Amino acid sequence: MPTKSNPIARFNQVLLFIVLVFAILYFAKPFLIPIAIGGMMAMLLVPVCKRLEQRKIPRGLAAVLCVLLTLLLLLAGGYLVFRQLVELGNDLPMIGRKLNGMLNSGHDFISEHFQLPVAKQKKYLQSQIAGLSDLAGQFIGDIFRFILSFLVHVLIITAYSVLLLIYRRRIKNFVLSLVSYYAGKERVAEARDIVDKTAAVASAYLAGVFSVALIFSVINTTGLAIIGVENPLFFGVMVAFINIIPYIGSVAGSSVVVLYTLVTSDSLLTPIIVAIFFIVMQQIDSYILTPKITGSKIQLNALFTIMALLLGSLVWNVAGMILFVPFLGVAKIIFDHVDSLKPYGNLIGDRDARG
């Protein structure tokens, strides 16, 4: 029986292809992550670059101006957040004293109501804290290694972004040439439409995601300042940008702020108000801002979005959690425009196929 009519052989070929793709993604991530971030940044800046080019600014100069201005804005925002982080570090001794007082109160309560000696409580607690400290240290170490790696590669990412903006037409023509060679000239117009839609939708989606993050940075910072939370800028920006990670980002970020206020506040009222504030903001995000700004750009269902998050975390760590969802969205656009791949687009989309 011919190989291509054998379903088992075809399944093995597809499986081998998938394994090779993810092996390359995993082992080549030091090379691929800067390219992916540079590509994401370039797609985000394509509309701005086009407007500058329409004003008779040369493409190379327009690309450099777009990327450098974006980089300066990011560095300015990073500097403000870093200053807030330094101020937060000054509060650590006070946080330690309050934690110690809370632990002592907990020991007395347990000893009084459950007849468990304080010495045994402390011994058990120390063993648990030791394990949690190792996990927390590993997590914080991973975050700082990612930030350090990003800073080391920032010049490379900047260069990639500029060059991708400059050579975007050449890259598009290369893809169309491949389509013409392998699929025939009659498919070139369709391929051009797919490339244009993919670039436009990816650019609009990324712009929408960062617009939502900036809006929530302002709202979170203002709200936390009114509530009376210290270092509101740091926590407001942190929660807003962690929220870029779908589904789990908002819960993780807001939980950090609630725990911080629970430790630093003298009453339970402040953490309760903070929790209510973030619940309300999450509803506004889910039902108003995100659907209006990014909801119509990439329509992925929750199942495959979470799978993309977990797979991205496994392959590329934090960078993968942020990048793999837009990658899946771009793949959906391609699936929706290729007849043989439309079932896959329906599978990962958030709308039921009509028939």
Rank of each mutant, 00 (worst) to 15 (best):
A130E: 14
L20W: 03
A200L: 05
L176M: 06
G137H: 05
V201Y: 05
I57Y: 06
F11D: 06
G345K: 12
S111Y: 05
L323R: 08
I95R: 14
L176K: 06
F216H: 09
L163V: 10
G249H: 06
R97M: 09
V218D: 04
A204Q: 15
A63T: 01
Q84T: 02
S340A: 15
A308N: 03
I276D: 01
T305K: 13
L310G: 15
V218G: 07
G39Q: 07
Q54M: 09
R354N: 15
D285R: 00
G236F: 00
F27G: 10
F241S: 01
E112M: 10
I219H: 01
L224S: 02
A189E: 15
F235E: 00
T305W: 09
L135V: 09
N12K: 12
I242A: 04
A319S: 15
D193A: 11
S105H: 12
G106D: 02
F114E: 07
G228V: 01
L148G: 14
A9E: 11
S161F: 00
R145S: 09
I33L: 15
G39F: 10
F114C: 03
V195M: 13
N90S: 09
K197Q: 11
T261S: 15
G106A: 10
G249T: 00
D350H: 10
D285H: 01
V218Y: 03
L88D: 05
A9R: 14
R145G: 04
V201I: 12
E53Q: 14
D134V: 08
F335Q: 03
N100V: 00
F335Y: 10
I35G: 05
V64I: 15
P7L: 04
P326W: 03
V162I: 15
E87A: 12
P34V: 05
Q282F: 01
I242Y: 03
L73T: 11
M40G: 15
F139M: 08
V218F: 07
E186I: 06
Q121D: 10
G137W: 03
A36K: 09
M40H: 07
Y182N: 11
K185S: 14
S267C: 04
G208C: 04
V212D: 13
L151W: 06
D193I: 01
A199E: 10
V239W: 01
G208K: 07
I171F: 14
D285P: 00
A302K: 14
A213G: 08
K342H: 13
I194A: 12
S161L: 02
P291V: 05
L65M: 14
G184A: 07
R354M: 09
G355L: 07
N231C: 06
L61T: 12
L125K: 02
D266K: 11
L25A: 13
D285Y: 00
L72R: 09
A302R: 13
V212H: 03
Q282W: 00
Q283G: 12
V188N: 05
L341S: 09
R168P: 02
R97F: 07
Q283N: 13
F278M: 03
V315K: 11
I244F: 14
I244K: 12
K332D: 12
Q121P: 10
V237K: 07
M238S: 06
D336G: 10
R59P: 02
L233C: 04
V315M: 08
G38N: 13
I288S: 01
L103R: 10
T270I: 11
F144D: 03
